[in-house]
Write a protein that binds this DNA or RNA. Structure first.
Length: 663
RNA sequence: GCCAAUGUAGCUCAGAGGUAGAGCAAUCGAUUCGUAAUCGAUAGGUCGUCGGUUCAAAUCCGACCAUUGGCUCCA
């Protein structure tokens, strides 16, 4: 048979040739350097056969893709090391039961059922053993087994996980194994579809086991919890060091750390988990966000409403929340025989507000906005600083519209997201369209397939026409309709949903919402739930990390810090502050008996955007000297000019400070 | 919720059966200083909570609470 090389050359190779055979046919030097192969654009390994007429590209250590193979093989090496370490401690080899061990973004992991829990010291021992296995330069072999052979192999090993994996393989799929080491009793054999490097000696030394964590078998909390070991691996020392450094740097941006250092929020044991307290500086930020949203919504035809924090059980039964969301709601309180729930969402109230007055088609769309605080009983392990809390202020609104208006309204909401994102300089995000899954109809989702299909088509069409890029994920919709989420990553790499925009074609009907159409017939409106600024908790958590605490002027809790050089300058400093306050700016004077240097430093640590220094010279000339992120040392700027400039930057919500032009 | 680790002063951390420590922050005093830490003094803690072991527990054991890292879920 023959294959084609990247230069188009045709190469004759024996029947059933592997990637390794192809490399050998090209030349002995390449055969020695080869680590993997790309066959018809797909990553494969030297142990796997290539097919007749394949386009083959041999990979060596110079090719970036080989790290995939290396990470995968390292996962197997780790499994071998874990088994050897446990056997050495007197455990039966069969008590170490590997689950799955895939490649991930910066390395790999492997899940195991083990006879005891792992400790950090175990990681050191396992890593040391891994290095020995790498040094031993064990060859890897690939072989195929029948389903029965494969099953009996793992039944002998007492490994139910691999048995389950094999049972789930579709008929006709070949069942392949990789073995490292010639003697399977001393090496390691694993069910695996590959690909792998040919020798453990080709693996880089630049790996590090990072952590142990519990992980449910197949991610299902009903199933056993295995122990997962995470490792990072790179081709070069530099890459590994850079990665570990980035992890450290990311920790410095963590909103929980910044929130404490900048006096933004606090969590108190006696108040309760996931119930943040907003300190004065944090409250400023929330209120600036609210002011922004109010302003924009006023321009966009929204009306503000208000609703209570709790209601009778019947409201949530009607909305459908209780059957679907009871687990994440605070339990009811009973008064005079009636059960009340604290609200997990504002929508039922807004539906009731819509229903409180008759509506004509001429009124639509009706847009009701409220930054209502909701309470959800998130599972304890899921709480995370401000990003995942139990009390949250939703940047909420519900838009009631006709089907004809839907697409335009939906796009207006998407445009709103984009307007906000531009204002905050957010450009690293992913829009995700979540659609229903057929299997969930009647359980996870409202049972009306026709409506689902129709609404999903409307959303797709709105997104396509607006030219907004998005990815589609099946089976992740809300129970009442499809949704668009905006996904972002926190500083430490955790993913969160920021904005959300959900279509609701089901609940308005349950609430008998209607408007009188032009033909004098009642019709049910569609409802769009939207939260472009997410919850204010999460938004601020995100913004803290996004700006690393260096907020744009309009959001900065304190905009100008005035530093008098000596006590005799305090009255002038106070008068400067007064002039700034009169312009609507947030300013404080540092009157401590500290040296100016210390005051400047403390203001820098609090990331105050403008630090004004006043002494004799400023006092005599009614000027200020200051520093900002863009201007390290500006001298003698007339006070009026300074305050006018700063308030302009704040009022216009400029993302960056712009230096004051020289007069 | 599950698995694991952690919990000492406002913050960052040391102490590992025998009278609770440091730096920063705070308070007081001195200093009045020109762009990232002035000097000195003082005060501050039932060592997460409750129980157990012990002559003696921050330290050992147990339960609970909280936080952190994951799993799962979501704004």
């Amino acid at each position: 048979m023959h294959v084609f090389l990247p230069d188009g050359k045709r190469l004759e190779v024996p029947e059933n040739a592997t990637g390794g055979d192809v490399a050998a046919a090209i030349g002995p030097g390449l055969a020695r350097a080869a680590l993997g192969v790309v066959v018809d654009g797909r990553l494969s390994d030297l142990l796997s056969e290539v097919h007749e007429g394949a386009n083959v590209n041999i990979l060596t250590g110079k090719d970036g893709e080989v790290i995939e193979l290396m990470r995968h093989t390292l996962a197997h090496v780790m499994a071998q090391a874990v088994r050897e370490v446990f056997v050495e401690q007197g455990f039966d080899a069969r008590s170490v039961r590997p689950g799955i061990g895939p490649v991930i973004e910066n390395g790999f992991y492997y899940d195991f059922e083990l006879p005891r829990t792992l400790t950090p010291t175990d990681l050191e021992a396992i890593e040391a053993r891994m290095r020995e296995i790498v040094s031993a330069n064990l060859p890897l072999m690939k072989f195929e087994r029948t389903r029965d052979e494969a099953l009996s192999f793992y039944k002998d090993q007492l490994n139910p996980y691999k048995v389950e994996l094999i049972e789930d393989l579709p008929d006709g799929e070949s069942i392949t194994f990789y073995q490292q080491g010639v003697d399977p009793d001393r090496g390691f054999v694993d069910l695996c579809r590959g690909p792998h490097v040919p020798l453990t000696g080709t693996l880089p030394k630049h790996f590090k086991l990072l952590s142990v964590a519990g992980a449910y078998w197949r991610g299902d909390e009903q199933r056993p919890m295995l122990q997962r070991i995470y490792g990072a691996a790179f081709r070069t020392e530099d890459e590994l060091e850079t990665y570990l450094w980035q992890v450290e740097q990311a920790k410095l941006r963590d909103h929980r750390k910044l929130g404490r250092e900048l006096d933004i929020f606090t969590l108190d044991d006696e108040v309760g988990p996931g119930l943040p307290l907003w300190l004065p500086r944090g409250t400023v930020i929330i209120e600036e966000l609210e002011a922004l949203a109010r302003e924009i919504e006023l321009r966009s035809g929204y009306q503000r409403v208000r609703s209570p924090h709790l209601s009778k059980e019947s409201l949530f039964l009607k909305s459908g929340h209780l059957p679907y969301y009871a687990d994440s709601m605070y339990p009811p309180m009973e008064l005079e025989g009636i059960r009340y729930y604290v609200k997990p969402m504002n929508c039922p109230f807004h539906h009731k507000i819509f229903a409180a007055r008759p509506h004509s088609y001429r009124d639509l769309p009706v847009r009701l906005a409220e930054y209502g605080t909701c309470y959800r009983y998130e599972k304890s392990g899921e709480l995370f600083g401000l990003m995942r809390v139990r009390s949250m202020q939703m940047n909420d609104a519900h838009i009631y519209c006709s089907e004809e208006q839907f697409e335009a309204e939906f796009m207006r909401v998407i445009d709103l997201y984009l307007e906000y994102f531009k204002l905050f300089g957010i450009d690293d995000y992913l829009m995700r369209l979540s659609t229903h899954g057929k299997a969930g109809l009647g359980k996870k989702y409202v049972d009306n397939e026709v409506l689902w299909e129709r609404t999903e088509a409307m959303v797709r069409s709105a997104m396509d026409r607006g030219g907004v890029p998005y990815v589609e994920v099946a089976d992740e919709a809300a129970f009442y309709g499809p949704k668009i989420d905006v996904q972002i990553k926190s500083a430490i790499g955790r993913e969160f949903t920021l904005a959300t925009n959900q279509v609701d074609f089901a609940v308005p009907e349950r609430f008998n919402l209607e408007y009188i159409d032009a033909d004098n017939k009642p019709r049910t409106p569609l409802c769009i739930h939207r939260a472009p600024l997410s919850t204010h908790e999460r938004m601020i958590g995100f913004l803290l990390e996004h700006f690393n605490g260096d907020f744009p002027l309009w959001l900065a809790p304190e905009q100008v810090r005035v530093v008098p050089i000596a006590d005799r300058h305090t009255p002038y400093a106070l008068s400067v502050r007064q002039q700034l306050n009169d312009q609507g700016l947030r300013s404080e004077v540092d009157m401590r008996g500290e040296r100016m240097n210390a005051k400047v430093r403390d203001a820098e640590l609090l990331k105050v955007p403008y630090i004004v220094v006043v002494g004799d010279r400023e006092q005599e000339s009614a000027t200020v000297s200051f520093r900002s992120r863009k201007e390290p040392d500006r001298k003698a700027v007339p006070i009026g000019e300074f305050s006018a400039h700063v308030s302009k930057v704040a009022v216009e919500r400029q993302l960056d400070i712009e230096p004051i032009a020289l007069a």
